[in-house]
Design a protein around this nucleic acid. Structure first.
Lengths: 360, 360
DNA sequence: CGCAAGTGTGAGAGCGCTCTCATGGAGTGT
DNA sequence: ACACTCCATGAGAGCGCTCTCACACTTGCG
């Protein structure tokens, strides 16, 4: 082992010391060295560095000084080995990378999670899975104790991933209400039902007569719930929910465009559309314009999400704002709390908000 | 330690076994257990699992079977502790999160890096730094041996981060030609000079007479080089490079809009614009339309990057395609090679490509 | 003044793995 | 048959840290 000047008490940080082997040049300082330099035992040095209080003031400063002098950073692997914690959490998106990166929602979640997790001193391991093979691999990986917890985004269908992870003792917090095992799973979600309702009520209240909806995918709770909200509002207004006013789409521009084109053919009398996402709404607007009608004047459109493009586009999109940053932050907080052994609320629904712009 | 059925040779995977303590329920199987079950020593089991060849066939299958039966996954922390490798690399973006998430370029890089790194069996630790404080913290972190290498994106100005990391023995690969230390730093970049030249030549060749450019930030090589390309092409055509045809901007829509508005006031005779990025081009187009002129008919516009919006917008944007996926993949490969002790080429410039659409 | 309780400290075990080195048995050459 | 190499294997050390436990030493109280 090459450890130059190990006992020469040089005042320079270890990494500026001369070394011969360029490849494996660096042997970072160990706790042992800090302890020796501070004149205490490894145990005491460890206590100081971990912030325990039952240490004398003199020992504390000696250790802190020594650590600083040699630029000591604890070796996470060693700590991890004994504590059984890895100080990292996985950010897992159950989508193809293509869709993950196409959707501003995920990016917003990644962003806020990154900030929250980094602030707690843990690292974010970023993972994308699509398909059962990936799931199995990830479960194995998590089982190996490589992450202390999982932030799980956008679970499709009735997949059992969260249950499996929890069974392995890996705390998991889900984004979006799960379709199964609602009792046992921790999740954070936006008020999708309330948002769908709010959007539809707004269209109705502004005097629109024939309010249609372009839905999201029905294998995800966000898609389901926003449609439920639409239904509720229509029924509350004393009307009948007409099947011909419900056009199925995904959370993409493309599918929104196609669904709306068909909708406008089937029901030329439509004068308002609640699109289940902003991307869908953008597709709907293109379809409306393509059909020769005018947005707002002929057909009002309201979206869902409030992605950044919504405010910038022409005309600016009226939409239901989802608190993406809050969602990510709350998920992270819940997870961190669970990792520390706490018992935060199992579910949290965050409120949404109507953002009135030019399309409705 | 709770380890139920430790020696009962149950055929069930360990994590389905009954356990009492809900909090720390799980003690994943260890190599020791695999070895015992296979009737070999820890050393031999380790050899098999690491894929060494000097093991008898009978031992190999016994170990593999045993590992499968108890769903064994090696503990990375333990391995890491002895090998000194962490099997993870950092994806570090030297920007505020805001800008990181606003720019499709970074997202594309993140995407391709994620795929490449995951394929190699390593994990991607995602980090965003802005400012010297963050840099210092990151250097400390990397010094602790927590990552085997760093993918560094978008280093601004003359920052010394890559040099520091290399000095610590942490292999680093940069995206974008560094402004300092070019000799010692590994980097991958697109042919920005060639791209700028190609774009400008295309405008000139299609009969445009007064070709302006809206630049990128001049504290980054991408901004500098694209401008150099513009200059080269203008000079090669036998014209003079006019200062009044160079409008300064950042890689954002907003700044592209403002710079172009000013440009059109100063030089109403402009009939073509090379914008240093697609976002800039989008801003430029808005400014052109706002001024009452028509894109292409009055003023041709060409961008740089070929972000996904470029193909979708109306009119579709002519641009220089940067091979983002290749860039990320190549960076990752270079880094992996270096981590394995190889000596890949220090610099790589990937070719760009003219994508002709409707604006030029 | 004696005993219990409290406080700071160090010795040492051990987390799960890799890797070196010694060993023994099979194969090869003379 | 003997020395030799070659190969599969296991024993055991040790990576850097945390944590338990025992030990001295103080302090408080009857």
């Amino acid at each position: 082992m090459i450890r130059p000047n190990a006992d020469s008490h040089t005042q320079y940080a270890w990494h500026t010391a001369f070394v011969t082997n360029a490849q494996r040049a660096h042997t970072p300082p160990t706790l042992e060295e800090v302890a020796a330099r501070a004149g205490v035992s490894r145990a005491t040095a460890s206590r100081v560095l971990r912030g325990e209080t039952n240490v004398s003031e003199s020992a504390r400063t000696a250790v802190l000084d020594a650590a600083k002098e040699i630029s000591y950073t604890p070796n996470r692997a060693a700590r991890s080995l004994v504590t059984g914690r890895s100080d990292s959490v996985a950010f897992l998106v159950d989508e193809t990378e293509e869709r993950m990166f196409a959707d501003p929602f995920f990016l917003g979640m990644l962003r806020s999670a990154q900030v929250a997790i980094a602030a707690a001193g843990l690292q974010l391991v970023f993972t994308v899975t699509s398909g059962p093979d990936d799931h199995r691999r990830f479960v194995e990986y998590a089982a190996g104790g490589h992450v202390d917890g999982v932030l799980l985004m956008s679970l499709h269908g009735r997949r059992q991933l969260p249950q499996q992870l929890e069974a392995l003792g890996v705390p998991t917090v889900l984004s979006g209400r799960p379709l199964t095992g609602r009792r046992t799973i921790y999740y954070v979600d936006a008020d999708n039902v309330g948002g769908g309702q709010l959007a539809t009520e707004h269209l109705l209240a502004s005097g629109r007569k024939v309010v249609a909806t372009v839905t999201g995918p029905q294998d995800m709770c966000a898609g389901q719930d926003r449609l439920i909200g639409y239904r509720k509002a229509v029924e509350a207004s004393g009307r009948l929910v007409e099947h011909s006013l419900i056009a199925d789409a995904e959370f993409t521009q493309e599918s929104g465009f196609n669904a709306t084109r068909q909708l406008l053919e089937d029901r030329p009398d439509v004068d308002a559309i609640f699109a289940a996402s902003d991307l869908t709404a953008m597709g709907a607007i293109r379809a409306i314009e393509r059909s020769g009608r005018r947005v707002f004047d002929d057909i009002a459109v309201i979206g869902f999400d409030d992605i950044s493009e919504a405010a910038l586009m022409q005309p600016a999109l009226t939409t239901i704002r989802q608190p993406v940053a809050d969602l990510g932050t709350t998920m992270s907080q819940r997870l961190l709390e669970r990792i520390d052994g706490g018992e935060p609320p199992k579910m949290t629904i965050l409120p949404v908000e109507l953002i009135k712009r030019q399309t409705a």
